[in-house]
C-alpha cells in the first residue's frame, strides 16, 4: 500500500504544481462572479441561476481536470521516459496503475473540494439557509462519479499512445454518457433490430455517470437521495471503477516497454 500511496502523492504534487487547476478555478470564479454581478429587475434575492452556472462550471472544470490529469499519466511517463526508473524499482505494474488511479482520484477530489468551498461561499451571499447536508451529498456523489471517469481515462491512457487522442475520446465518451446515457432504453424502444439490442446492451453496460448528477436538487433546494441510495450508487461506482482498473492492469502488465 505504501508504494501505491507513494505513486499517488507524485500525481497529486503534479496537479498542484501545474497551472491548469488554477486557471480553471479562476475561470469558474470569474464566470460565476460575472453572472452574480448582473442586475435582474433589482432583485437581490435571485440566486438559483448563479448556483446553476457555478455548478455547471464546477462539473466541466472537474471533468477536464480529471480527464486531462489522468490521460497524460501513462503516455507522459513513457514520453518523458520516467517510466523506466519507476519500473526499475520493486513496484509492480498493478501498483503503478493503482497508484496512478488513487493519485488522480484524490487530486480531482481536492480540486472538487476547493470548487465546492467557492460554491458554498457564493451561495451564502444570497441564501440565508445553506443546505450543508445537500452540498456534502452532492460533492460525495460527484467524487464517486469522478472515480469512474478516472478509471475510464486511465484505461484509455494505457490503450492510446497520444495524450490528445485519449483526452478527445474520453471527453466525447463521457459527455455522450452524461447527455444520453439514461435515455438509451427509451431510444432503444424506437429502434428496429439489431440496433435495438445494441442500444439496450449499451444502456445496461455503460457506466451511468449521469446518475451522480444531482445539481437540479441543489440548485432548486429539493431533497437529495438518502444516504442508503448514495451508498448503493457508491457501490455501483466502485464496481465499474474496479472493472476499468482491472482491464487497464490486464493491458499494462504484459506491455513491452523498450528503453
Amino acid at each position: 500500500m505504501s508504494r501505491i500511496w507513494a505513486v499517488a502523492t507524485v500525481v497529486i504534487k503534479e496537479l498542484y504544481r501545474r497551472k491548469d487547476f488554477y486557471v480553471l478555478f479562476v475561470l469558474t470564479a470569474l464566470l460565476t462572479l460575472g453572472a452574480l454581478s448582473v442586475n435582474f429587475f433589482d432583485d437581490p434575492k435571485i440566486i438559483r441561476y448563479v448556483k446553476d452556472i457555478c455548478l455547471l462550471l464546477i462539473w466541466l472544470s472537474t471533468l477536464i481536470i480529471a480527464i486531462v490529469t489522468t490521460a497524460r499519466q501513462i503516455p507522459a511517463e513513457k514520453e518523458d521516459r520516467t517510466i523506466f526508473p519507476l519500473l526499475a524499482k520493486p513496484v509492480s505494474r498493478g501498483q503503478v496503475i493503482a497508484g496512478k488511479f488513487l493519485g488522480c482520484w484524490l487530486a480531482s477530489g481536492l480540486a472538487l473540494l476547493v470548487f465546492y468551498i467557492f460554491f458554498v461561499a457564493v451561495t451564502g451571499l444570497r441564501e440565508p439557509h445553506l443546505m450543508w447536508g445537500a452540498y456534502l451529498k452532492s460533492m460525495f456523489l460527484h467524487w464517486m462519479m469522478l472515480a469512474m471517469v478516472v478509471g475510464l481515462t486511465l484505461l484509455g491512457s494505457v490503450i492510446f499512445t497520444a495524450v490528445s487522442a485519449n483526452v478527445t475520446i474520453c471527453l466525447i465518451a463521457i459527455f455522450g454518457i452524461l447527455v444520453v446515457g439514461e435515455h438509451l432504453a427509451k431510444i432503444a424502444v424506437r429502434q428496429a433490430e439489431p440496433v435495438r439490442t445494441i442500444t439496450y446492451t449499451l444502456f445496461y453496460c455503460l457506466p451511468h455517470l449521469e446518475l451522480f448528477d444531482v445539481r437540479a436538487q441543489v440548485v432548486n433546494n429539493q431533497p437529495l437521495p438518502g444516504w442508503l441510495d448514495c451508498g448503493l450508487a457508491s457501490l455501483y461506482a466502485a464496481a465499474y471503477t474496479g472493472v476499468l482498473l482491472y482491464a487497464a492492469w490486464l493491458l499494462f502488465r504484459r506491455r513491452s516497454l523498450s528503453t
Binding site: F40, I47, Y204, E210, F212, P225
Partner: peptide, 29 residues
C-alpha cells in the same frame, strides 16, 4: 421501464411542484 431506470429516477426530482412564495423570481433571469 426497467430496474436501472427506476434506480436512476431515485436520483432525480420526481415530485411535481410549482414555485411559490416569491420564489418565482428565480425564473426571471
Amino acid at each position: 421501464e426497467n430496474w436501472l431506470e427506476a434506480f436512476i429516477h431515485r436520483f432525480r426530482i420526481t415530485k411535481h411542484s410549482h414555485l411559490t412564495g416569491g420564489n418565482e423570481r428565480e425564473m426571471l433571469p
